[in-house]
Design a protein around this nucleic acid. Structure first.
Length: 255
DNA sequence: ATGTCCCAACTTTTGGGA
């Protein structure tokens, strides 16, 4: 089973790239973030034509998350059902091929002194509460744009990011709660030395300079982690015509 | 160079967000 996550920065613009990418890489499950669409505009039929069932939690101009699955899509659920949903359409879940899948778009936080930064921490805390409700034998994967680089080796130059979001101790502590709930940043198992990124700013030629961060994560429950066999970032998807500023992160599991 | 991309709107240029 192959599962993947991709912040597409508008599915309106990126649908051709998504269609091209799924044909090349055949994920069984693909989580999308920042679709920037209403549910009415979400291209359910175009995805069906590619062989994918889908569920979308969208709001229009901002945010928006989706799950595409070719291995079934059961018990769909949008949001937390709590006040954290006021921070935007940032969570959608479904059971695909026996695995509880969540597509997550964690608030950016804007700056360390912003009220939006506190929302980011609160949103992650709420996610941690939800994950703790699962049992030890449940196979669960939370995939998405976490807007946090877990360790210094996940950014190109920690010195250049002093005082910025995505690398602060508070954000990393908020992420650590997920680890304490028994979830693995499973990509790390296959790339322990870091230096592999999933996002590069559009500005300043960051991609070509190698100025990236690994902020798109796949967090897996212990029961699912056991089956992981490989993980990679498809940097090619960051190249070419009208790329997203994020590249897809892919994890393969044994059956 | 805060240098790009994407969205929406009292749309042909500006402002917000990432």
């Amino acid at each position: 089973m192959r599962i993947a996550t991709w912040n597409v920065n508008s599915l309106n613009v990126r649908l051709p790239r998504v269609e091209e990418w799924v044909a090349l890489h055949s994920p069984d499950v693909l989580c999308l973030q920042e679709t920037k669409q209403t549910n009415e505009k979400f291209p359910t039929k175009a995805l069906e034509a590619l062989g994918y069932d889908s569920i979308h939690n969208g709001e229009g101009r901002w945010n928006g998350v989706a799950i595409l699955s070719s291995v079934g899509l059961e018990s769909p659920a949008s949001g937390f059902g709590s006040k954290e949903d006021e921070f935007g359409a940032r969570l959608v879940a479904a059971t695909c091929g026996g695995v509880r899948i969540m597509s997550a778009y964690v608030p950016n936080g804007r700056s360390l002194d912003s009220e939006h930064f506190q929302s980011k921490l609160q949103w992650l805390a709420r996610l941690g509460e939800v994950l703790k409700e699962f049992g030890d034998s449940d196979e669960v994967a939370v995939l998405g744009d976490f807007n946090v680089a877990p360790v210094d080796a996940d950014v190109w130059d920690i010195g250049a990011l002093e005082g910025m979001t995505h690398v602060s101790a508070e954000e990393r502590a908020a992420l650590e709660v997920l680890a304490e709930a028994g979830y693995d940043d499973i990509f790390r198992r296959f790339h322990p030395d870091g230096g592999v990124y999933s996002w590069w700013d559009y500005r300043d030629g960051a991609f070509h300079k190698g100025h990236g961060m690994r902020i798109d994560l796949v967090m897996t429950s212990a029961a699912l982690s056991k089956r992981a066999k490989d993980a990679f970032v498809d940097r090619d998807a960051r190249k070419g015509v009208k790329p997203s500023d994020h590249a897809p992160v892919v994890v393969d599991f044994s059956d």
